[in-house]
């Protein structure tokens, strides 16, 4: 499969637009879902997924064929979703680290259980509830949890996609798992 994608990219680099369509069709499910989970709504997800593919096309010359295309594509998509989230809340960021707290952010200041999860589950389908809890994680944890457990990238690949050191990926995935554990343990 990787070989097929590699071949298609060669064609696109030569100027063959139709080969790019095959690439889009092959990756659209994964990229769209990634955007959807990052953004939490279908409209924005479609918008950003589309933008990600177009960016990939216009910058295809800067893609190094020896690297993994999916990693590169996810990187574009992730950066775009994070940009979108930033633009969405211009006043303050819950996930912005607070000065002098060594990695703590505003989420840690929120009351941890402001509604009883039991009531919540009654109203919502379980899956929806879980999805919502993931969506409420700060983006920097959410992206890693999703890439690891839903899109099944290795930690090394995640460090490539997000362009952060492997150690940071591990720290964040630990915190992300702990945060979700606390949210979901009463379910």
């Amino acid at each position: 499969m990787d070989e097929m994608i590699r071949e298609k990219i060669k064609q696109v680099k030569k100027g063959d637009q139709s080969s790019f369509e095959d690439i889009v069709i092959y990756f659209q499910n994964r990229i769209y879902q990634h955007c959807y989970r990052m953004l939490g709504n279908a409209h924005e997800a479609e918008d950003v997924a589309q933008e990600a593919f177009i960016r990939a096309y216009t910058n295809i010359d800067s893609f190094d064929n020896r690297r993994k295309f999916s990693t590169w594509l996810y990187r574009i998509a992730t950066n775009l979703t994070i940009d979108r989230i930033r633009k969405r809340k211009p006043d303050y960021f819950l996930d912005a680290e607070m000065k002098g707290t060594d990695g703590l952010d505003m989420y840690t200041r929120l009351p941890s259980q402001d509604r009883s999860p039991g009531e919540e589950v009654e109203g919502l389908e379980l899956q929806r509830f879980i999805h919502q809890e993931i969506a409420e994680l700060p983006p920097k944890y959410r992206s890693i949890i999703m890439l690891r457990y839903l899109e099944e990238f290795s930690l090394k690949e995640i460090s490539d996609i997000l362009n952060i050191p492997l150690g940071t990926v591990k720290t964040r995935i630990h915190r992300g798992r702990e945060a979700l554990r606390k949210k979901l343990r009463h379910v």
Binding site: E21, N29, V187
Partner: peptide, 28 residues
């Protein structure tokens, strides 16, 4: 922790709008 991971992996499948690829191609 293990249960949490199982939960995460069981989240709903989201289907892609069918028009996505054609929209991308149109906007290249």
């Amino acid at each position: 922790l293990k249960r949490t991971l199982t939960f995460i992996q069981s989240t709903e499948h989201i289907s892609v709008p069918e028009s996505l690829s054609s929209k991308v191609m149109q906007n290249l």
